[in-house]
């Protein structure tokens, strides 16, 4: 996880498109420029970045459902709850389930847990658009490979 680059996910552990289910994990770094401000002397993963982790996990689900041919983006969140502090060194497990596959959008249910304890959850609205440049899908696929997504299984 490199918070300052919004590189939030370390690995995609489960990529089950048939059941609309993705799991990802990430360890909060011990040090990050983000913690210089949030908060001085008491580093805490900002809640918006927990939401961002849920967004990235949902993003992988939508990338997969669209065969990595369209770009997902975060459009809205409901029922957002940040239930506990997420601290450096914690291993976070992010789970995303498809609630509804609409035309050009999806609704997903997301959770983040640490040692099985629910620390954040939300319902996300994700939209998809065509990639705005020919370079971007290449970069996205490369990032997905780095995160452990088995692109060879995609049709």
């Amino acid at each position: 996880m490199r918070l300052e680059y919004f590189d939030i996910i370390d690995t995609v552990d489960v990529f089950d498109l048939e059941n609309g289910h993705v799991e990802a994990s990430s360890t909060i770094p011990e040090e990050s420029p983000v913690f210089e401000g949030h908060f001085p002397g008491y580093p805490v993963m900002p809640g918006v970045l927990l939401l961002e982790m849920m967004n990235h996990t949902a993003g992988y689900l939508l990338l997969g459902l669209n065969n990595f041919g369209r770009l997902p983006f975060f459009a809205g969140a409901k029922k957002v709850k940040i239930r506990s502090f997420a601290l450096p060194g914690m291993l976070m497990k992010s789970v995303c389930d498809l609630v509804h596959d609409g035309s050009g959008f999806c609704i997903t249910r997301n959770e983040i847990r640490v040692d099985g304890k629910l620390i954040a959850d939300a319902e996300l609205t994700m939209m998809v658009m065509d990639f705005p440049s020919p370079e971007l899908p290449v970069l996205v696929r490369e990032r997905a490979r780095q995160h452990g997504v088995e692109l060879g299984t995609l049709t």
Binding site: A75, G76, H100, G102, S103, F105, T125, M127
Partner: peptide, 9 residues
Amino acid sequence: SLDFLDIVF
């Protein structure tokens, strides 16, 4: 447009 997405959902 975002409200309309909720309605469509």
